[in-house]
Amino acid sequence: MALLLDSDDAPSARWRPLARWAAWAAAAAALLAFPLAAGGFLTHTATLVLLTVIGAAGFHLILRVGLVSLGHAAFAGIGGYTSVILMMTFGLPWIVCFVAGGVSAAALALLVGPIVLRLKGVYFVLITFTFGEILRLIFNDWQSMTGGANGISHIPPPWPALMDTRAYYYLALFAAGAAILFCARLLASDFGRKMDAIRESESLAEANGIPVFAVKVIVFAIGCTLAGLQGSLQAHFIRLISPLAYSFQESLNFLVMNVVGGSNSLVGPIVGTVFLVALPEFLRGWVEYQFIIYGVILVVVMAALPGGLVELWQRACRWITSLSTRSGR
């Protein structure tokens, strides 16, 4: 694990290796034991969180080169529909469909990316928004393939044993874990450093020999692939897909997760996803106000806490350290 996440900017994380290993092991054990302790509903929710984290991590990668894609959910839709149609109409085995879900999203991203990535800032946001809406219209209007506005229901699970929510939880845990480790490794590699350089200043990065455009295309494709894989896994879990699940609002949710959690590190979207799915649990009886609260949180975070909840945590840690050093004297 330590090797996997190896990074040059390690001085900030000066944990003793043993404590670090213990923390990782405890977290892994807690995640593995969760469905045994929690009830069916909580396990269902946790599975949704794990699946959503995959897409949110993909969104995060794109955000790390300074881009906001409001077509992200539509790429999840591409993965979902491809996978479901291949399985239900053509009877292919699940693993083929799952891979095809990711590949189709990647192929589309590689096709569209070089075109839309010529635009920057708010113009990129607008064009991805538009592209996402076009895809949603296709999902909606291609009746014979997609089932139109009603979508497709009675989607079979990957294999019969996964009808059980607990079993699916472990599949989701494995997939989310793999996705997160891949993203973490990517961000800690030289490639990740190039991504951060691009976000800070495109022209300087270009002058320092970084092929800015090519890096952006690759990152966009990877991010969309993750969305596609999530779309596939989610469709076979909820066992229902419809255009509504891949609208602009869903892309917005990915943005909210990243911004609220924190857009400077991969921990951000993970925290943000948990927070956004867990929030309704804390707001029981306030269901109708939930989205109002989302909106307000989004504004407050943008105004006062650009690093999101992760930054809040870091600030708190620093505050506690400063308290303890003061009292120690």
């Binding site: 040059d8 190039k194 350089a197 300087l204």
Partner: peptide, 27 residues
């Protein structure tokens, strides 16, 4: 052939070491 700029010449969020590390990519 490498250039510098009038205004932005550093990656503000990165440390000094990381800045120079980015500079090494072209070599």
């Amino acid at each position: 052939l490498i250039r510098t700029f009038q205004a932005t010449n550093v990656y503000a969020g990165k440390t000094v070491f990381e800045n120079v590390y980015v500079g090494t990519f072209s070599s």
